[in-house]
Design a binder for these strands. Sequence first.
DNA 1: CCAAAAGTGTTATTTATACACCCATGT
DNA 2: ACATGGGTGTATAAATAACACTTTTGG
Lengths: 237, 237
Amino acid sequence: MSGTSEKRFLARYRAEAFPRPSVAVDLVILTIVDCELRVLLVERKEHPFRGEWALPGGFLRVGAKRGDFGEDLDAAAERELREETGLSSGVYLEQLYTFGKANRDPRTRVLSVAHYALVRPDLVPLVRPGGDVGEVAWHEARRPPRLAFDHREILQTALARIRGKIDYTDIAFELVPPTFTIQELRAVHEVVKGAHQDPGNFRKRFERMVEDGLIERAPGKRLTASKPARVYRFRRE
Amino acid sequence: MSGTSEKRFLARYRAEAFPRPSVAVDLVILTIVDCELRVLLVERKEHPFRGEWALPGGFLRVGAKRGDFGEDLDAAAERELREETGLSSGVYLEQLYTFGKANRDPRTRVLSVAHYALVRPDLVPLVRPGGDVGEVAWHEARRPPRLAFDHREILQTALARIRGKIDYTDIAFELVPPTFTIQELRAVHEVVKGAHQDPGNFRKRFERMVEDGLIERAPGKRLTASKPARVYRFRRE
DNA sequence: CCAAAAGTGTTATTTATACACCCATGT
DNA sequence: ACATGGGTGTATAAATAACACTTTTGG
């Protein structure tokens, strides 16, 4: 398969012949706290956009030496997530879109391969902003402050994505604790869609998921302001 | 907004400090001919994978000089599409996914920002493979030949994408001529989903789209092997 | 007792699925 | 005349939506 002429070609290949873009991996890290969608933002310590809020992210590591090509793209996203939150597992992470307007970064040509992450509310207290950065905080995802670069557009794209996926995928379960009540799951749908969900009708959808084996009863009850509610858990296959 | 300290920072910024990946824009160009999903492939003239089939594509153009940052990512995709097919309008083009395994290209680190395009069957005869390349041909998308790089995975991803989108978007209309019969649109659904669609039931869905103003009657009839069929057209808003 | 939220039920409308059948046309 | 495929109808099941109601708890 790999003939000698191909080997010779590769040995002679000059990778530096053409200019290349930098590639950033930016993260839209979302959670729900107090029935509000929140996004994790960092304050920029350096130019450009110094002092403004931005999505956490970093550059894709590309090996410098021959034979070392660096890290996989999805590994870079996981590394960034770990660096920014301290969380290394139990977080849903998915590639979102690649943003590539030529002048989106004033420094040089930078492509942003944006990803989004969904952090369960029970993990939020464990989030430990990574070492070197300055201010890090959760903000209202729907009313973010002024954002650096095209990060506002990236955020909007992420919100549109989860809104579109919540009805036919399992992502809602990434935004509730390991055990949850019907109302808690309904609250997730309401927050993500930004629309009221009828409790009775939602219950029917919920019960269908139980029948289908997607959800199962969990022991115990959840104490609320009134009548305690039954708790369930998502059955990961 | 852009203070003098920021201007100084940008003036001093050394873009070449860290190694960068090459960024390719690869295209999954699909059409339907004779009730079969087809993908446009090119034969590689150079190493690596010389002589094997591959998705058409090329490198993102990044400006070399300061102040010239090159072309937008979506402009690059359109340019590639034009170069490979000669078609400059009337073709649906959408970003698919960015593939970034570190060793997906044996030459050097190359990210592939894959896009997919849908070419209406009436435009297929107008396709003029661009200048310099060698063999170019339509292949069965479901049974492609051996493909270079990770292009098989990219193709599969594109097929999965259109399968998932055909029921709740307008992409089916990108795979029929400007005017079409109910059966022609049904054939598109059957080919994309790979499953039989009941003619009577599909007609009901179709009629609902007519009521909703999404589709309208077009003058004339389509001659078939038997009774001539009514033709319709998609109403672009 | 009472407010609040959990949990249940009713009905109408729309949509999906399976399938039987009529009708116009070219050969 | 007849096979072919266009065009139509019917019955059932299931999903969606609007909304009224009962029950169980904490205060």
